[in-house]
Amino acid sequence: MAAIELRNIVKVFSDKRRGRDLLTLDNINLDIEANDFVCLLGPSGCGKSTLLNIIAGFEQATSGRTLVDGKQVERPGSDRGVVFQQPTLMPWLTAIDNIAFHLKLKGVAKAERYDRAMESIDLVGLRGFEHHHPSEMSGGMNQRVGIARALLMNPSVILMDEPFAALDAQTKLEMQEELVAIWQKRRSTIVFVTHSVDEALVLGNKIVVMTKRPGRIREAVNFDLPRPRDITSPEFNDAKRHILSLIREESTRLAQAS
């Protein structure tokens, strides 16, 4: 049984002001195995974030079934940790209180909360900043807090929606390396949304290329290049060429259609 099963997912947004419906996701079928690092790759507006939101339970599919660990997804829950595009931390809480927030909701005592959160703090390299508020930290540090928060929930699935999109190139590289290291250490299932071919190739062992409007799956590419990945190696470039050709085919098709 796959960790995540998407069956015939269709999502239609009704645009009431313009009086028409927008088909965003058209019949998505996808199986994601446990411990997979899957990158959903596609241009802006292809519905990849919508697909992630459906798995997270933030949005409901118009039709189709979403199963996580064999259970139908109906609402958000702590079995699916989400890392948002913006850090989305509670601005009134310190880093450690943000990370341990779900423990507080469960009524765990403060000493134990902090004890357990410190592990995650170390994992994302934020020791010394645990009592800082989000406004006192950089965007990259806040995004680490967001990742640590998702990790501490110990979810079976981690869903990440372009979490590094707002970071500078150098911080982005560091974060990508750290994320891979964390994933290798913890072996959890990650679904990572990105519009960057390079990012998908650095991170994923399965890259799902999506088409633009309506969102369909063009091809799911398995990519098992050993890590750490050399982004200048022939294997990396072969994969990149393949994926770029998929994208290019798609834009030619769109150009001919219009």
Binding site: F58, P76, F84, Q86, T88, L89, L105
Partner: peptide, 15 residues
Amino acid sequence: VDHNLVRAGAMMGAN
């Protein structure tokens, strides 16, 4: 209130 904070809360299991 930022609706993403509400989503984050729901994700962490807030009732």
